[in-house]
Every structure is written in C-alpha cells, then in structure tokens.
Computed example of a mutant assay.
Amino acid sequence: MDNQELSILNTPEELNNRASYLITNLHQYTFSNLPSVLDRIITEKTWAKLPTKFNNFGEYTLNQGVDGLGIDSNEKLWLLRCALDFESKHIVEWKDILVNVEQMTKFIPVDKRKNISLEKLSTTPGYQNKITYHPSQVSGKDKAILELNKKKKLYLSKIAKGAITKAEALEKIGITNKKKIAYNQTISSFKRLTKQQKTEFINWLKTEKFI
C-alpha cells in the first residue's frame, strides 16, 4: 500500500484494521513462511543448483543478480537474520554471510559504517538502506561466531548438528569463561552502588572474613 492508497483510510477503524492486517501478515511472513523457505533452501542446498555458481550461502544471499536474494541493506540483513536459526541450526550459513559482509565493509571508514549492532543499524536513519555492518568490530553474538570460525571452525558444524552448544564451544576456545563473566558482573554491579552501599558491602565482606 502506497501513500495514495493509505490516504483513503479515513476512520480510526479503517486505520486500525489495516495496521492489524499488516502486523499479522508481517509476522506470518517473517517468522513462519520465510524461515521455512530459507530452511529448505539450506537443507536441500538449492542455492548451489542455480545457474549462477555460488561458493556458499553467504555469496548467494548477498548477490544482486537474478539468482541471488539481493540482500543490499542493513534492514534486509536484519530481516534475514530474524528468519534464520543463526545461533544453532543455520550457524554455518550465517557465518558465511558474516564473512562476506565483513569483506564487503572492511574498507568503509569507521565513521561511515558506524560500529553499532545490526539491529540498531537497521533502524538508524542514514544506515538502513545500505550494508555498513562490520561484525568483527561490534561485540556480540556475530563477533563470537566469527571468532569460532577463526579459531575452531569444526565447532560450527557441531553446533549446527546439536552435538555442542554455542556457549560450550565459546568456552572451550576461551572466548568466554563463566568465572570471569561472574567476576566482571560483580565489578560492574559494585561500581553502580552508592557510596553508602559500597561501604555496607565492604563491611559485609569483612564480617564474612573475605577480607
């Protein structure tokens, strides 16, 4: 529906009905229809059976030709991520996308690509309609996937098959450490305390003979 069509919706009821319709259909397409189609493309490797020869799923999704998915913006990339099981079943395919995106954007000056999450880029004016995402420079899940690919690529296939979780794999290669995470969280929480609360906490440590 374009602006001209939208202008004919005059009553609150008409606007409400249209919004409800669009939300329902968007949800259906994004979280049901599209995921199912993508899963089949990945499972059957149909992306490798097209006239254009792609080396991996990442090349296929970013290709702007008739055989590619034409992902050409942060908005579309975020939508694709929402439709993929990118942390487990489709982690290898999402890794391929990240590697290709990383290659595409590595020469973009930092001030032009804006080092924030893909989700924020997809809703930030000026960054929505182009791919500026550089995952290795943004802390989070995608950076961790690239680290896994760099240090222990085999773990990605194991995660996809359910033989190991992503969290377990990251801990095995030293990216995360439960004890270190707990320590960092404690320090961060302590810094947010008031002066009085810090004093009380230190007194508690003394009472418990920790110090």
Rank of each mutant, 00 (worst) to 15 (best):
S7P: 10
L9Y: 11
P12G: 07
E13W: 07
N16H: 10
N16F: 15
N17A: 14
A19Y: 07
S20V: 10
T24K: 15
N25K: 15
H27S: 15
Q28F: 09
T30P: 06
F31R: 10
S36F: 09
D39I: 06
R40M: 09
T46Y: 14
L50H: 07
P51F: 01
T52Y: 01
T52Q: 14
K53Y: 02
K53V: 13
F54I: 06
N55D: 12
N55M: 08
G58F: 03
E59W: 06
Y60M: 04
N63P: 07
Q64H: 09
G65S: 12
G65R: 05
V66A: 14
D67R: 10
G70Y: 08
I71L: 05
D72M: 05
E75H: 14
L77V: 04
L77G: 08
W78T: 05
R81Q: 15
R81F: 02
A83S: 15
L84R: 07
D85S: 13
E87T: 11
E87V: 04
K89T: 13
I91F: 00
I91Y: 00
I91V: 13
W94A: 01
W94I: 01
W94Q: 00
K95C: 03
D96R: 00
I97D: 00
V99E: 06
Q103L: 11
T105L: 03
K106T: 06
I108W: 02
P109M: 00
K112E: 14
K112C: 09
K112F: 07
R113I: 01
R113P: 09
R113F: 01
R113S: 12
R113K: 14
I116E: 01
S117C: 11
S117H: 05
E119D: 08
K120H: 07
K120W: 00
L121F: 03
S122E: 02
T123S: 11
T124V: 03
T124H: 03
P125H: 01
P125Y: 00
G126A: 05
Y127H: 11
I131R: 05
T132E: 02
T132D: 01
Q137N: 13
G140H: 03
A144E: 14
E147M: 12
L148S: 09
L148V: 06
K150C: 10
K152P: 05
L154I: 13
Y155W: 03
Y155D: 13
L156W: 06
K158Q: 14
A160D: 07
A163E: 15
K166L: 08
A167E: 12
A169R: 04
A169K: 05
A169S: 14
L170R: 10
L170E: 05
E171D: 11
E171Y: 01
I173V: 13
I173Y: 04
G174H: 05
I175N: 08
N177C: 09
N177P: 08
K179H: 04
K180G: 00
A182V: 08
Y183N: 14
N184C: 11
T186F: 15
I187E: 03
I187C: 13
S188V: 07
S189T: 11
R192H: 10
L193I: 01
K195E: 06
Q197H: 11
Q197C: 07
K198T: 01
E200D: 12
E200N: 13
F201E: 02
F201K: 08
I202L: 13
N203K: 10
W204V: 11
L205R: 10
K206N: 13
K206S: 07
K206E: 05
E208G: 04
I211P: 04
